[in-house]
Amino acid sequence: MNEQEVGMALVIELRRGVSALRTGRKAGPSPATGMLERMVVDDEFWTALARLGRHRLPTLSDVDAYGDTTLRGEAVDRMVGELEGANLAQLNSAEHEAIATLWAWGLRCRADRDLRIAFSGD
């Protein structure tokens, strides 16, 4: 964890973009777009990265503490793969909840390519 990241609030959202593919969609209402789920984290995100080893989680380590970062497609695939190898048992409950939520969202993004994970820094 960098010193500038201590006390940095981070808003993380699971979002759905508008699909570029319109053909072959089943009849019925279109899926909701925009923000689907949201969590706001403080130090627990950064301390979790430090405990798990930033070098083991390069995708999450690249999240901009001060700006916006969006993960979709291959970036989400990388994040999920990195988290599959992580030992979440070493995290406290708040850290575990934040990282486990990201992992679950990543799995949803893998199954539905219109989903993305957006990080907004302080």
Rank of each mutant, 00 (worst) to 15 (best):
W103N: 10
W103V: 06
E37L: 10
S93E: 14
V41S: 15
D64F: 03
T69D: 06
A32R: 10
R108S: 12
D42P: 00
E5A: 08
Q90E: 10
C109Y: 10
D114K: 06
V80M: 00
Q4R: 12
M39V: 14
M39C: 07
R25H: 06
L71S: 04
E3S: 12
R56P: 01
T33K: 00
V80Y: 00
L60F: 05
Q4E: 14
L88P: 01
V41G: 02
D62F: 03
W105Q: 12
L10A: 04
S120Y: 11
G81H: 02
A86T: 05
W46Q: 07
I12S: 07
W46P: 04
A100M: 12
R54Q: 11
R113I: 11
L49H: 05
V6P: 01
I12V: 15
G28I: 08
C109D: 06
R110M: 15
S93D: 14
R113P: 08
V63D: 07
P29S: 11
R16D: 07
R113W: 06
G121T: 04
R72N: 07
D77V: 10
T33H: 00
T101Q: 15
P31I: 01
G106C: 13
F45S: 01
T23G: 12
A86S: 15
A111Y: 01
G81Q: 02
C109P: 06
E95Q: 15
L60V: 02
A111D: 13
Q90N: 03
G67P: 00
L36D: 05
L115V: 08
Q4K: 12
W105R: 09
G73W: 08
E95R: 02
A75C: 04
G67H: 00
H55E: 15
V40D: 08
L83P: 04
M1Y: 06
L83T: 04
V63Y: 06
E74S: 10
